[in-house]
Design a binder for these strands. Structure first.
Lengths: 227, 227
DNA sequence: GCGACATTGTACGAAACAGTTAGTTTAGTC
DNA sequence: GACTAAACTAACTGTTTCGTACAATGTCGC
């Protein structure tokens, strides 16, 4: 429990150190990601992160240079993981309306499942995006999300169910807004309005609202089905 | 420049202290609000706040008890100021569609003009709303926003232009999401998509999108005007 | 003009904190 | 098995930062 010494396979009982650079790196990054997401950049404590690690504080400086370097890697890590998850969605064979519906639902659920990512983005925005500036890695994560939405939109316009003149990036912006806010502001919103917006029923309603809202926004009037 | 001693009206030159509890309080709170909004709770420094004040660190502890007490008051202050601003909107005489349009536009602009408030809400959400919990003052700020939107919605339903079955609180949630996100996530969004979402043109487009989106969401199909 | 309480200034203490120094151990190479 | 670069440990340093002790001054009722 208290000892963190990694042992090798020796049978003579002498506690020898086993070297595992990649493992140590990953371990530190995982712990740091949680701590930063929970407490923010200035709120997180290097000593605390080190203590939760299988490794030590010195190793943080060895591998990441310092607190800010570690935070930057944690931020990059959060973006990378979420982008990887997004890539799994495939709507290619679906009708445009169904595809867009699926996309919104997926985004809603995905954001909801990755609160740690949402919190990192919030924290980074609090810091005016200055660390994102320094990261080539994040800029290089080519934004497939836009391609995806653009293709669905084009198909919808071509088949006459979506109206013309909309901007895929703005569409993505709106979908993000509806899905992000639910996670980012749930706490204060729930408290002020005395309702739990994290309950299964509430989430279900909000999710349907989001889908409805986006579909009504892009659809041509005569393509709307209800009301 | 360097001396912060407040002097009274005496002519003999002796530097005597002038007491001004309310002024001191307000001064501290104003400075603290800026610092907390800029740096967050853990990022803000009591010494820094004290230095920017006309007063001293001692006074912060005298009036606010400590860092957390000061933060709580700053949070309450932010909510109060914004709520007061919201109360100025009057849509009573307007047609429901125009009223709702006005409400969304107003919310969009209002959020945009009060970035400090947005940041405080983000920061409070990072802290899981735990300070909001402790504040009766904020809970007591009865949420007139809901009344306002509920009245517009009811009028719209009554006159047949809005569809039935929508929840005013959820409507408020959606409007908030669209308007909040624009301020809260502008930095990261702009950076990742290589576009300035803070430019006048971008804001204008996003604003119109938000209005359009809400109106299309609440309107009955046959009441939609274009496309 | 005095007693009681409210307000303010100065200086300091203790703990928390990021970062470093000085070394040891391991794994692979020749 | 000697050597070396990479991986790792333990203990330490200097500063920052929150918070406080104590004293001094102002205000107001009487």
């Amino acid at each position: 429990m208290t000892k963190k010494i990694k042992r090798n396979g020796k049978t003579d009982g002498t506690p020898t150190r086993v070297q595992d650079p990649e493992g140590t790196r990953r371990d530190i990054l995982e712990v740091a990601s949680k701590e930063f997401a929970l407490n923010g950049l200035s709120g997180a404590r290097i000593d605390e992160i080190a203590a939760r690690t299988k490794s030590s504080k010195r190793m943080i400086y060895y591998y990441f240079g310092g607190k800010e370097g570690l935070y930057l890697r944690a931020l990059e890590n959060a973006y990378r993981m979420v982008r990887e998850g997004e890539a799994k969605l495939d709507t290619e064979g679906m009708a445009p309306v169904d595809a867009l519906k699926r996309l919104v639902e997926f985004t809603f659920d995905h954001h909801h499942q990755h609160e740690e990512f949402i919190r990192m983005v919030m924290i980074e925005n609090i810091h005016h995006g200055q660390y994102l500036d320094r990261s080539e890695a994040i800029r290089d994560l080519n934004v497939t999300a836009i391609d995806h939405i653009a293709r669905i939109y084009q198909r919808g316009v071509a088949s006459g169910v979506f109206r013309r003149g909309l901007d895929p990036v703005e569409l993505h912006w709106q979908i993000s807004a509806l899905c992000f806010f639910n996670v980012s502001n749930r706490r204060t919103f729930s408290k002020i309005f005395g309702r739990d917006f994290g309950s299964a029923e509430a989430l279900d309603r909000l999710r349907r609202n989001a889908v409805d809202m986006v579909l009504r926004f892009v659809s041509r009037r005569d393509a709307l089905q209800n009301d």
